[in-house]
Design a protein around this nucleic acid. Structure first.
Length: 296
RNA sequence: GGCCCGAUGGCGAAGUAGCAACGCGACGGUCUGCAAAACCGUUAUGGGUGGGUGCAACUCCCACUCGGGCCU
């Protein structure tokens, strides 16, 4: 029998982290965070990372497990996340995967299977010099099927596709059956509510010293370039610290970008018809559903 | 009262007698190891209003309205 696992998704600032804790307490579970930025040590306020207090004794996995000197990937998440899930179920507890990085969750759960080809830095550097046109031509030659449905303007994707196509290893079998029996729960506020939550949360974090955190990270060697690539908070913080924008522009620009990000997240989950969506104030229904799922 | 300049999508902003650039914003979407990233698409049948000239006017002419400037 497949292991039961609960996947809790929702846009940023929807309140899913708090709900994950509540759910874990009620169901005897532990949380596996699925957040591509909270895995890094040092990114705390900017990522809205849950605090020890907020965890209320519920163990959280996959937080603070990576160094900013390295690039954490979906594959890393897959390996370590599954290990965490195994570890939790071994203790007869329920794994609750909760987070905003839909791609990571889909990977962990087996909705998406990754090619068994690790990043090849040298090859990437070489391919990066080519134009999208050239990359596409190469892809047509070495992986015509992939070339058909790829984003032809997206260099990052083109490079990765070629990396797979040009590697010696044979692609993995596509038959990876989902290792888990998943209950999908989504938390989604209304658009207006979401906007308000995002602003309020941003202001609160500014008071907590979000700017100081970024300044400290910079002093400790985190380049503005890297912050830029981290996106959202750290990207805007980098601009602010370099005095390229005013505080007013920072507030407006960042909260707008966070909102846009939230919409992108929702778009990502739209295709997953298994998700049962709940409003933030209707989480009791979600708890009931989860209990039923576990009782089966 | 007289003279001059301007009036283009939610905002900013080009341009030309012959299908209304572009930027921002908004909205929608993609997603097979960087996923808070990267990438794609849509967004003015209409150019202050009313007339006129022209095969054709946002583009030329006249009047009016509004905004800005100058003069008495």
């Amino acid at each position: 029998m497949r292991v039961k696992l609960i996947a809790l998704v929702g846009p940023t600032a929807s309140g899913k982290s708090a709900f994950a804790v509540a759910l874990a307490k009620k169901l005897n579970g532990e949380v596996i965070s699925a957040d591509s930025r909270q895995v890094y040590r040092g990114l705390d306020i900017g990522t809205g990372k849950i605090t020890k207090r907020e965890m209320r004794g519920v163990p959280h996995h996959m937080i603070d497990i990576a160094s900013l000197n390295k690039t954490f990937t979906a594959h890393d998440f897959l390996i370590q996340g599954r290990r965490a899930a195994r570890d939790i179920t071994k203790r007869t507890l329920v794994p609750i995967v909760s987070g905003g990085t839909g791609f990571y969750i889909d990977t962990l759960v087996g909705r998406i299977s990754l090619a068994d080809v690790p990043p090849n830095k040298k090859m990437r550097a070489r391919l990066d010099k080519k134009t999208n046109q050239q990359l596409l031509a190469l892809l047509r030659k070495y992986a015509p099927r992939r070339a058909k449905n790829i984003d032809t303007h997206n260099k990052r994707r083109l490079v990765r596709a070629l990396e797979i196509a040009l590697s010696k290893k044979a692609p993995p079998s596509r038959t990876t059956h989902p290792p888990y029996n998943v209950l999908w729960i989504g938390i989604s506020p209304s658009k207006e509510d979401l906007r308000k939550r995002i602003r309020a949360r941003l202001m609160a974090r500014m008071k907590l010293g979000m700017v100081a955190e970024a300044r400290r990270l910079y002093k400790n060697g985190l380049s503005y370039q890297r912050m830029e690539n981290l996106g959202l908070e750290y990207r805007w913080l980098a601009h602010l610290l370099q005095k390229q924008i005013t505080r007013t522009e920072f507030d407006a620009g960042l909260s707008r970008d966070i909102y846009r990000y939230a919409k992108r997240q929702l778009t990502y989950w739209k295709r997953n018809k298994d998700i049962r969506w709940f409003a933030p104030n209707k989480t009791n229904d979600a708890v009931r559903l989860a209990k039923k799922f576990l009782a089966l």
